[in-house]
C-alpha cells in the first residue's frame, strides 16, 4: 500500500497509510504512516467496538494536520490487550498463503450466485 501512497502523493494528493506491519511500512517508506500495534486483519480497530474505531481514526487522521516531515510514522496509543500473547502466536503461525489461482474466492455460495447473475450496477468491478 506504501507504493500506492507514494504514487497518489506524487500526483499532489496528501495520503496517510494506516499499518499494523511496522517493518514492511518502514521498508516501503510512505509519505505519512500511522502504526497500530494490533494483529493483522484489524488495521482500523476491533470488531463491534465503534468508539475504539472512531478514536483510532481520529488519532490517525490528525496526522494530516500535524506531520511536517516526509516519511514520518506516528505510533497510535492503543493496545490490543494487557498482555501481548497475540504476538507470540503471530510469530509462530505464519499466514496460510496458498498456491495462487485465479478463481474468485467468495465468502459464501450466495455471493457467487449473485455475482454470476449479473452483479450490482452500482458496484462495478474496475479493471481500468
Amino acid at each position: 500500500m506504501g507504493l500506492v501512497a507514494r504514487h497518489v502523493e506524487a500526483a499532489g494528493i496528501p495520503t496517510l497509510c494506516m499499518t499494523s506491519a511496522h517493518d514492511i511500512t518502514r521498508a516501503v517508506n510512505p509519505p505519512r504512516a500511522a502504526f497500530l500495534d494490533f494483529p493483522l486483519g484489524h488495521t482500523t480497530g476491533k470488531p463491534h467496538d465503534p468508539d475504539l474505531q472512531r478514536r483510532i481514526l481520529v488519532e490517525a487522521l490528525s496526522s494530516f494536520e500535524t506531520m511536517t516531515a516526509p516519511g514520518a510514522m506516528k505510533e497510535l496509543p492503543f493496545r490490543w490487550s494487557e498482555d501481548e500473547e497475540w504476538k507470540a502466536k503471530a510469530f509462530a503461525e505464519g499466514d496460510d498463503r496458498t498456491p495462487r489461482h485465479d478463481t474468485p474466492q467468495y465468502q459464501d455460495e450466495e455471493d457467487r450466485r449473485r455475482a454470476v447473475q449479473g452483479g450490482s450496477p452500482s458496484c462495478p468491478v474496475c479493471r481500468s
Partner: peptide, 16 residues
C-alpha cells in the same frame, strides 16, 4: 455481495 470476488493470483483489479 453481487460483485465478483477477488482471486489469489496477483489480482490487480479493484472494486468501487
Amino acid at each position: 455481495t453481487g460483485q465478483v470476488a477477488f482471486h489469489y493470483k496477483d489480482d490487480t483489479s479493484f472494486r468501487e
